[in-house]
């Protein structure tokens, strides 16, 4: 792969009808590039959970995937309310999701821990009132 493949999607807040389409595109792009199915699944889970977070918590935002020869770097960025206590937000079972999000099957407090679990490199930065940036990298050949 000569040049990196960059995908960028604007995700609308609270739009559960379209949510997931961007992540599915990212997954299909990786599949087309011949990336192994286990890596495709991990990236799909990370992208989808991050996309759902943008929909539920971020008031929308931007989901990016930068695919280079040996890795995919995902970034999810929003200008939403931010996370007051990141450590708490990373705890399985902790959630501040709305009732509506729960009715859609989300808000179990599994999203961020699951993103971290599937990532080779993971980082999250957040400031209350400013927004949140999530970074995740998955290497294609790492065992």
């Amino acid at each position: 792969m000569a040049a990196p493949v960059c995908l960028e999607y604007r995700i609308e807040g609270n739009d559960f009808m379209v949510a997931g389409a961007a992540s599915n595109n990212i997954k299909n792009t990786l599949k087309m590039l011949g990336i192994s199915s286990s890596v495709c699944t991990r990236v799909a889970i990370i992208a989808y959970e991050a996309e759902i977070n943008l929909v539920i918590h971020g008031g929308g935002g931007v989901l990016k995937a930068e695919i280079t020869e040996d890795r995919v770097k995902l970034t999810a960025e929003d200008e939403g309310p931010g996370i007051a206590d990141i450590e708490k937000a990373m705890t399985e079972g902790f959630s501040t999701a709305t009732e509506y999000a729960r009715e859609m099957g989300f808000g179990a407090g599994m999203g961020l821990p699951n993103i971290k679990k599937n990532s080779d490199e993971f980082n999250i930065e957040s400031e209350v009132g400013k927004g949140t940036r999530l970074y995740s990298t998955v290497f294609f050949n790492k065992q």
Binding site: F16, M17, A19, S23, N24, S37, Y48, M104, G105
Partner: peptide, 29 residues
């Protein structure tokens, strides 16, 4: 769906009582 994404393995049948579009999205992932 959060639990499906956390625990379910690819190629598995999903049984659920939720019927919104995110079930299909989860299945895709």
């Amino acid at each position: 769906m959060s639990d499906v994404l956390a625990f379910c393995t690819p190629g598995t049948l999903l049984l659920t009582g939720l019927t919104n579009v995110q079930i299909v999205r989860t299945a895709q992932m």
